[in-house]
Design a protein around this nucleic acid. Structure first.
Length: 575
DNA sequence: ATTTGCTGTCATGAG
DNA sequence: TCCTCATGACAGCAA
């Protein structure tokens, strides 16, 4: 966004310039680098302290998202913990993304509520907060949703959810324990519940996107195999979520890299940056380096142009950079035309025809043999001038130069033209070349020509036709290249668009997770047993039944059930 | 002097 | 069989 605000033009995306940019000034790319660092940090890969705020881009990175939290909290080993952890902070890190105004607004609302209530409900270390507004909550689930410590008491959940206190369901159920771990000082492994799929339509709201009904719906355990979740696992999001996010996050960076290096618009890039908080700067720079084209770039180039790789690289670069700074709508034409300007000039020279004929059209590659009609004009320029006698070898292309009087004319004549003059061919090369066979034969019959003349005429016709054929062939080849490049551009745009959509979905999911967490915590914190005492999160957790009710049950029960199900879970996973 | 792109030409195969 | 076209390969030319 900063780059956009600065009015960075396409020159910014020039490779050379960009390289300088990255060194001297905070740029989109660099911010992405940092974002990637943060990303990896959340994964526990990069343990170095991450700057809470990107000083270069000014991108707000929730200070409350502590690197320490992540590392320490992952004490509970869980494969999926990293993924969920990375997804979590992302949401909080990405306030104010234009396309997400709605969600963002809601998010802000939630945060505000949290802020107000944080003090009251808060029982844990503030450091664990991943967002500034959130109240400090338990240590355990920082990498998951749990560090989203807040109790939004005002939520309507209490009204919608029936809590059967202390009731223990006879049937084992999946227990989404993503939240209760918050208060769980003991490291009782919170159950990792399999999250029933979200239905976005369900989300009514606290703040309009997430309602109590949604809560039950989301955590509704599958009636039968609801136990697929591992209760003893780390407090993470339910598997579907975790899987989805993990998978998404794993490749989103690479996707973004690809998208970036393939030159989708700057707006898209910055947006993705905001959304993704990942870094593609390095790859972007390197990929656009002429010396080290990216693999995808290379493949694209080789696929699109078999004739000149060096030219293609530069063209690719031009396309990419131009599109970077272009508005998405202008992307295609700008990029394509700019990148293939040289191609067009070639074509113009080649065919002597209007440039407009080459306007890239996807289906323009047809064997249209009307390409080179004007060519014949050259032949007819001096078609039947009196020629000096003397037979010369056809191959002697410099023969005419030996005849000073013909120099001026010869300069503007083709070799065959000069040969025809030399051989005293009584009609124009245009006719020789372009007449239909019948008329051509008639023409030959009209004149009494010797063998040499006939041979020359046949050669002229053959070469003339082949010349046009070659021109057509080359033109078609360039058209094909242009078409392919057009297709590449289109695919890149589609790819960028899909990636953007993906990011938006991920963000929505994150937000819903956050809301779910807060709702869970709120509900749980307000539960009281018969004697009015709160349930210890280390011993109890909430569970959702198929009929929409919410039960609180001892962890021991759920854990026991969980222990019975690893095999089944594995089977399920295999399926 | 070398490189590069364009163009013409030839050889060849297909229709 | 001939003609035409398409195309890869090569060479010459000019910038």
């Amino acid at each position: 966004r900063q780059d956009i605000d600065l009015g960075a033009g396409r020159e910014v995306f020039n490779y050379s310039n960009r390289q300088k940019e990255s060194e001297e000034k905070p740029s989109l790319l660099e911010s992405k680098d940092r974002n990637e660092e943060r990303e990896s940090l959340r994964n526990g890969i990069n343990l170095q302290g991450a700057p809470p705020v990107d000083g270069e881009t000014g991108e707000s990175i929730p200070e409350q998202f502590p690197a320490a939290d992540v590392t320490e909290e992952i004490s509970v080993s869980n494969e999926e913990a990293p993924s969920t952890s990375q997804s979590l902070p992302l949401g909080s890190q990405l306030p104010g993304d234009e396309p997400q105004l709605d969600l963002e607004q809601q998010w802000q609302d939630i945060m505000a509520i949290m802020e107000l209530q944080a003090m009251e409900v808060n029982t844990t270390d503030p450091q664990t907060d991943f967002s500034s507004a959130s109240a400090p909550n338990g240590t355990t689930d920082a990498n998951t949703v749990a560090n989203f410590g807040l109790a939004t008491r005002s939520t309507p959940i209490n009204e919608d959810v029936s809590l059967h206190q202390a009731s223990i369901p006879s049937c084992s159920q999946d227990f989404p324990q993503i939240f209760n771990s918050q208060l769980d000082s003991t490291s009782i492994p919170p159950p990792r519940a399999s999250m029933p799929r979200l239905s976005s339509s369900n989300s009514s709201n606290i703040n309009s996107t997430f309602g109590a009904t949604n809560l039950t719906g989301i955590f509704l355990p599958p009636p039968i195999n609801g136990s697929s979740s591992n209760i003893t696992s780390t407090p993470t999001l339910p598997d579907p979520f975790a899987t989805l996010l993990e998978e998404s996050m794993l490749d989103e960076i690479s996707l973004l890299d690809l998208a970036m290096e393939e030159g989708f618009s700057q707006a898209q890039a910055s947006q993705l940056e905001d959304e993704l908080d990942s870094d593609s700067g390095l790859s972007l720079d390197s990929s656009h380096s002429p010396a080290s084209p990216s693999s995808s770039e290379t493949s694209c180039s080789s696929a699109a142009s078999s004739s000149s790789t060096s030219a293609t690289f530069s063209e690719e670069g031009a396309v990419g950079y131009s599109t970077d700074s272009e508005v998405a709508t202008a992307e295609t034409e700008e990029g394509a035309v700019g990148g293939y300007q040289s191609e067009y000039s070639k074509l113009c020279r080649m065919s002597y025809q209007d440039l407009s004929q080459f306007h890239p059209q996807l289906d323009s590659i047809s064997h249209n043999h009307t390409y080179n009609l004007p060519l014949s004009s050259a032949f007819s320029e001096h078609p039947e001038l009196p020629l000096t006698a003397g037979k010369k070898t056809i191959r002697d292309k410099h023969s005419s130069k030996l005849q000073p009087p013909q120099d001026l004319l010869d300069k503007h004549s083709s070799r065959d033209e000069r040969r025809a003059r030399t051989m005293k061919i009584p009609f124009s090369n245009e006719k020789i070349i372009n007449l239909p066979v019948d008329e051509f034969n008639e023409l030959l019959a009209k004149h009494h020509l010797n063998e040499a003349q006939l041979a020359l005429i046949r050669d002229i016709r053959r070469r003339g036709k082949n010349k046009m054929a070659a021109q057509n062939c080359r033109k078609r080849k360039l058209d094909a290249i242009i078409t392919l490049e057009q297709g590449v551009q289109d695919l890149r745009r589609d790819k960028a668009r899909l990636l953007k959509e993906k990011m938006e979905f991920l963000r929505s999911i994150r937000q819903m997770k956050h809301k779910m967490q807060s709702l869970y915590q709120e509900v749980f914190s307000q539960l009281r047993d018969e004697e009015g005492r709160p349930y210890p999160p280390s011993q109890y957790s909430l569970q959702y039944s198929a009929d929409g009710s919410v039960l609180i049950m001892p962890r021991s029960v759920t854990a026991a059930e969980q222990n019975r199900k690893p095999e089944k879970k594995q089977k399920d996973k295999k399926k």
